[in-house]
Structures are given as structure tokens and as C-alpha cells.
């Protein structure tokens, strides 16, 4: 059936099965491929988007559950925190293969929106749902601290 939801400010209606994960609707129906598939069971965080501003694993969220909601993907994140995080990611050369980094950035920006000065433990608790098989974790941590510092100014 047709499912209607708002993605990055635009309302979309897609005719797909109710149980289709939002992830595949975004990627296959709307062509928004910045959001990645990594596990399909909410273990790796590569599929993270925002639902009404809060992080959401799109691989375990059926489109039937997001009717009328506002979805934001990596392609459209904006604001001071997003800019600070993405600048810190680039300056610190965080990514290796880069495949998980959309999800990492989405989680990091969400953390900084709620917590302007996260401790290492805050970072652990917010970010441990995002797996990076290249293990870029040390740089992720450093980049979040760096982004937080840049937001103080």
C-alpha cells in the first residue's frame, strides 16, 4: 500500500509493503543512499536516520511506523552540530573505508545536540551502537571532543 512520510523536508508517497524497512524505502525508492545497510537487525547503526529529530535505526523500522513523521537523513543534516562534526571528521581523517561513517556522524550529531560537552563515557553510551569494522573509534572519539570544543566558541 501507499505510505506517506516526510523526508528531508519533502513529502513522499511510496507504494510498498507495510513491513518494508524505512532503510530500503529511503535507498531503493527515494534514492537516498547515504544511509547504509550493515546488518538489518539494529546491531551496527549504519542505517541511522532521525525521526522527528531523534536517532532511529531505519533497518528495523517499518514504513508503516513512520506515517506522517519527519525523517532526516545524512544528506540533509544541518546546523552547528552537524557542521562541527563533519568538519572534525574531515580534519581528523576519521574515515577509513567510510561505509559506517554516515551512521557514526548521525549518532555523533545527535549526541552533541543533547549534550554540548560529552565525557568519554557519554560518547561510549551514545556511540557504542555504531560498529566500525575498520575500528576508527579512537578518531571518532577525538573528533567528537574536537567538535564539542569548536561549539564552545
Amino acid at each position: 500500500m501507499a505510505h506517506t512520510f516526510k523526508v528531508n523536508g519533502t513529502t513522499h508517497s511510496v507504494d510498498i509493503d507495510d513491513d518494508t524497512p524505512l532503510l530500503w524505502a529511503l535507498r531503493d525508492n527515494l534514492g537516498l543512499t547515504g544511509t547504509k545497510f550493515g546488518c538489518g537487525v539494529a546491531q551496527c547503526g549504519a542505517c541511522t536516520v532521525y525521526l522527528d529529530g531523534k536517532p532511529l535505526r531505519s533497518c528495523v523500522t517499518p514504513v508503516s511506523a513512520v506515517a506522517g513523521a519527519e525523517i532526516t537523513t545524512i544528506e540533509a543534516i544541518s546546523g552547528r552540530e552537524a557542521e562541527a562534526v563533519q568538519a572534525a571528521w574531515t580534519a581528523g581523517d576519521v574515515p577509513q573505508c567510510g561505509y559506517c561513517q554516515s551512521g557514526q556522524v548521525m549518532s555523533a550529531v545527535a549526541l552533541l545536540k543533547e549534550n554540548k560537552k560529552p565525557t568519554d563515557q557519554d560518547i561510549d553510551l551514545a556511540m557504542n551502537g555504531n560498529i566500525c569494522r575498520c575500528a576508527t573509534y579512537a578518531r571518532i572519539r577525538a573528533a567528537i571532543h574536537s567538535a564539542a570544543r569548536s561549539l564552545e566558541v
Binding site: 539494529a42 531523534k54 532511529l56 535505526r57 533497518c59 523500522t61 511506523a65 549518532s107 549526541l111 557519554d122
Partner: peptide, 21 residues
């Protein structure tokens, strides 16, 4: 849950059986 990784990040309003969530 903690900021950035709340229960609702993964757990929806009902079971999502295809992913055993």
C-alpha cells in the same frame, strides 16, 4: 536510555518480527 542511544532508537511501538526486534 542515554542521549544518542535511547531505547526508541531501536525499539519501536510494536514488535518488528522480520528483524526480531
Amino acid at each position: 536510555g542515554a542521549p544518542g542511544l535511547e531505547c526508541a532508537t531501536c525499539h519501536g511501538k510494536q514488535n518488528y518480527d522480520p528483524a526480531r526486534m
